[in-house]
């Protein structure tokens, strides 16, 4: 979807959404839902959970959007809210074991329909590598490489210092280099 809103129009759209204009709010949903879902998916490893996380995020955004001082901060804020929902769901479902993340089989069945075998193998390697990470590392991976967050912004979401985030990024990259054979 990713229906882009003209940056010049964004402040007015946000202001109307904050005033309770559902049409304006729908424009924000259309523009950002997919970004939020991408981040949530990498965090929780399940497309259904990712969608659930983002859908849980929107009512909170509705209530809070009026407190956004700078519309330029909208996207990272939205991504942060969705990431927190995804982290919470991942913790809950992981502990309750309602559903295991079916990375290998699920991905295999889906990618089998497209791409060459080398790409498919690489994608499965990546999916399995991500599935082997803990929740904090998955969150860092999603926020840095999908959302483009800085270490400081990531730190706000995962509850570490920015220095701690940078240290984890370094360890994460070492691990992924090995597991992805790079």
């Amino acid at each position: 979807m990713d229906a882009v809103i003209d940056p010049d129009a964004l402040p007015a759209v946000v202001a109307r959404a904050a005033d309770g204009d559902e049409v304006a709010f729908a424009r924000l949903v259309a523009a950002h839902h997919d970004d939020m879902a991408r981040v949530a998916y990498v965090i929780c490893g399940d497309p259904d959970l990712a969608q659930e996380a983002v859908q849980l995020a929107w009512p909170k955004v509705w209530r809070k959007v009026g407190t956004l001082r700078d519309p330029g901060h909208l996207r990272p804020w939205l991504v942060s809210v969705a990431a927190n929902e995804a982290r919470q769901l991942a913790r809950t479902r992981g502990r309750r074991q309602v559903r295991e993340v079916p990375v290998g089989d699920d991905l295999g069945s889906l990618v089998a329909r497209r791409g060459d075998p080398g790409d498919r193998a690489a994608e499965m390697d990546l999916a399995n590598a991500i599935a082997g990470l803990d929740l904090t590392d998955r969150s860092i991976l999603a926020l840095r490489y999908v959302a483009g967050f800085s270490s400081l912004e990531i730190a706000e979401v995962v509850g570490l210092s920015s220095g701690g985030v940078r240290a984890r990024i370094a360890r994460l990259l070492d691990r992924l280099r090995r597991e992805l054979h790079e």
Partner: peptide, 27 residues
């Protein structure tokens, strides 16, 4: 690679419906 992988979390949505639900539950 991660961004391409993340696309698997994207599903078709009805933005208007989501906005309406958010408004209904967020009030």
């Amino acid at each position: 690679r991660v961004t391409r992988h993340a696309d698997r979390g994207v599903r078709p949505i009805d933005a208007g419906h989501i906005a309406h639900e958010a408004a209904a539950t967020g009030r």
